[in-house]
Design a protein around this nucleic acid. Structure first.
Lengths: 313, 313
DNA sequence: TTATTCTATGAAACGGGTTTTAGGTCAAGT
DNA sequence: ACTTGACCTAAAACCCGTTTCATAGAATAA
C-alpha cells in the first residue's frame, strides 16, 4: 500500500506537508498543494483510517448496546441512532447483550480499551453504579430516566402523557381499564410509571385480573385478550404498551367475532396507525437521534426528556 | 494512560516480553509472567485496542450496508448477522445507505481506507461491477443471487420453493392467483424469479389487474387487497411477498366484512404464524449468519444458497 | 564432548498517520 | 535599517502495540 511517505517522496516534500495538504489546514503553498495532489492521484493514494484513528487516539466508533432486536421499542430507538449517525462522523457498532451482565461488562471494558469512543445503552441489566464507574473512559448515555444526575440520559416523558390518557378515559366515563405491561412491575420503571399514573387518576390500582405483565408482542397481546374474552370480564378499555400488542388484541377479538373494546396503543407503529386507535406516540426515533447527539457531543453532562403525545384519533 | 512501556519498566522487562505475556504465546518464564501480571494489575493496565488494530493493520470491523430498517427482509438478515457476530471477534458497523449510489460508493471507499475489514451488502443500488472493483480491498458479500461467479454471495433458494408453492396451488385447483411483488419487475431479481416460477406452472403470466408491484408493508397489502375487493375480481389466492403484507390483506378483507381468499405469506414472521396461512420461510436469519461467516472467513470465493421451505400449515 | 535444539528475553524496526518544534523567506510597519 | 508577523516547510517526536532478529544459557542428542 502506498503511504504518506511515498507521496512525500514522489512530490519532493516532507510527510508533514502531505498531511497538511490532506487535512487542508495550516499554510501550504498552492504550488506545493497541486504537486502533492498530483502525486496522490498518480499513486492512487488514500489515507489509512486505522493509522489516522491511532494518531488521533480515537476511532469514532459508538457502541450501541442492544438486548435483542425483537422489541419495537429497541429497534425504533436504534433507527433513530442510525439515522443520526448518518449525519455525523461517527459509526454505529451494534453490541448485542441479551440482557447478560457479563456481556455488558465486557462492552464497558472494551470502552476502557478504546474499542469505542462512547457507548449508548438502549437498555441494560447491570446497575447504573457499574455504568458510571466506566464513564471516565468515554461518554455513556442511557435511554431511561436514571433518577440521578451523574449520568447522561435521554428518556420519554411518559408520566405526563399517561396521566393525560387516563384523564381522557375518565372524562369518557371509561373506568374498567385493563392494563398490559411490558415487564413486571418490580423491575421496570416504565411499568411503575404506568400504574402510578393509573392510580393518580382512578385512585386505585387495576384489579388483578385486569393487570397483565410481560406482554410485549402481537402474540402476547392476542393471548392476553383471549384471557379477557374467555373470562367474560367487563372491560371498557385495554391499555396496551405497544401498537403491535394492540393489534394482537384487536385480532383476538375479531377471531372471536367480537367487537373489541377501546384499545389504546403506544409507539405509533403502522399497526396502530392502521387500526386508527388512540395511542401514545413516544417519538422513539427522536429519542435515538438525541442519544447519538448527546453521546458524540462536547457539551456538559445532561439529561434530555423527549416529549410524547397522546393521539386521540 | 499507562501503556506497555510503563508495565515493562515497572516489572523490569522489555516491552516485547510484556506483549508476549499479553498474548500468551511464545516462550515466557513463569516467574516473568507473574511479575508482569502483577505490574499490570497494580497500574490498572489494559491494552489499547486502537494501537493493537494499527499494529495488526486491521480493525475487525465488518460494515453492513442497509438501505433502511423498515423492511423485515433487511432486519431479519441483520439480526442473523448480529447474532453471528456475537460469536465472532468481529464487530458489526451499521451503514445506512438509503439506496443512494454515492453513499454506497463512499462506503466502498471507506473499505479501501481500511475503515472496515469487510463489507456485507444486504441490498444495493450500484452495479455488481462497481462492487467487485473494490473486492481487492477486503471481502465483500452480497445477499442475493449475483448470477456470476466472481463475488461472494449468500441467497435464498427461492425458485425451487416458489415452484413448489405454485404447484401446490395448481394441485388444489387454484388458478386465479393475484401476485403482490415487493419491487418492480424490471429492477428486482426476486420479482423476476417469482413471475418466472408462476409462468412455469401456470404457463402464462398473471393478468395485469392481478399483478401488483412495490408492495412491501402491511399498509401496502391492505391497499392492494382493497383494490381487489373494490374491483370485485375473481381471486382464489393472493400470493404476497411477506407476512406483514399478508396480514394487511387479511385485515382489509375483515374490514370489508369479507372472508379473504387463500393468502400466502413469506418470511415467517409472527403475523404469518398467527394467521396460520401457508407461507414460504426463507430463513433469513440463517442467511445473515452465513453472510457474516463468509465475510469473516478465510476460505475461497464461494456462494451459499440457503434453503427455503413452503409451509402449507 | 560437541553439535543441536529449546527456552527465554531484549533491542530495534515497523505500521502510517499527526503534531510540535524550529527555522527560513519575504513583505509590511516603525 | 530593524522589528514584527505572516507564510511555508522539514525534521523529529509521538501514538502503542506487534514482530523480527539477535543472543545467550540450558537441555538434549549424537
Amino acid at each position: 500500500m502506498t503511504n504518506i511517505h511515498d507521496i512525500a517522496k514522489k512530490s519532493g516534500v516532507s510527510a508533514s506537508t502531505v498531511s497538511r495538504v490532506l487535512n487542508g489546514k495550516n499554510y501550504v503553498a498552492n504550488s506545493t498543494s497541486l504537486a502533492v495532489e498530483a502525486a496522490m492521484k498518480e499513486l492512487n493514494y488514500v489515507p489509512n483510517d486505522i493509522a489516522r484513528d491511532f494518531s488521533h487516539g480515537r476511532n469514532y466508533n459508538v457502541g450501541v448496546i442492544l438486548p435483542h432486536t425483537k422489541h419495537p421499542y429497541f429497534t425504533q430507538i436504534l433507527s433513530g441512532i442510525i439515522a443520526a449517525s448518518f449525519e455525523s462522523d461517527y459509526r454505529v457498532v451494534i453490541l448485542p447483550s441479551q440482557y447478560n451482565e457479563s456481556v455488558e461488562i465486557d462492552y464497558l471494558e472494551q470502552l476502557r480499551r478504546k474499542a469505542f469512543d462512547a457507548l449508548i445503552f438502549i437498555s441494560h441489566e447491570i446497575s447504573l453504579d457499574k455504568i458510571t464507574e466506566y464513564s471516565q473512559y468515554g461518554r455513556i448515555v442511557v435511554c431511561e430516566n436514571p433518577n440521578r444526575e451523574d449520568v447522561f440520559a435521554v428518556y420519554s416523558k411518559r408520566r405526563t402523557t399517561y396521566l393525560e390518557a387516563f384523564k381522557w378515559l375518565k372524562s369518557q366515563q371509561i373506568e374498567q381499564v385493563a392494563v398490559l405491561l411490558s415487564r413486571d412491575y418490580a423491575s421496570s420503571v416504565t411499568s411503575q410509571i404506568t400504574l402510578d399514573a393509573y392510580q393518580s387518576i382512578f385512585t386505585k390500582l387495576p384489579n388483578n385480573d385486569l393487570l397483565f405483565e410481560t406482554v410485549t408482542t402481537f402474540q402476547d397481546g392476542y393471548e392476553a385478550a383471549q384471557t379477557i374474552i374467555k373470562q367474560q370480564l367487563n372491560v371498557q378499555c385495554i391499555f396496551t404498551n405497544g401498537d403491535d400488542v394492540a393489534a394482537g388484541v384487536v385480532q383476538a377479538y375479531q377471531a372471536h367475532q367480537k367487537t373489541p373494546p377501546l384499545v389504546i396503543g403506544q409507539e405509533n407503529q403502522f399497526s396502530g396507525q392502521l387500526l386508527n386507535i388512540p395511542r401514545i406516540n413516544h417519538h422513539f426515533d427522536k429519542l435515538g437521534r438525541q442519544a447519538l447527539e448527546l453521546v458524540t457531543g462536547a457539551g456538559e453532562m445532561q439529561q434530555v426528556v423527549i416529549e410524547s403525545d397522546f393521539i386521540i384519533r
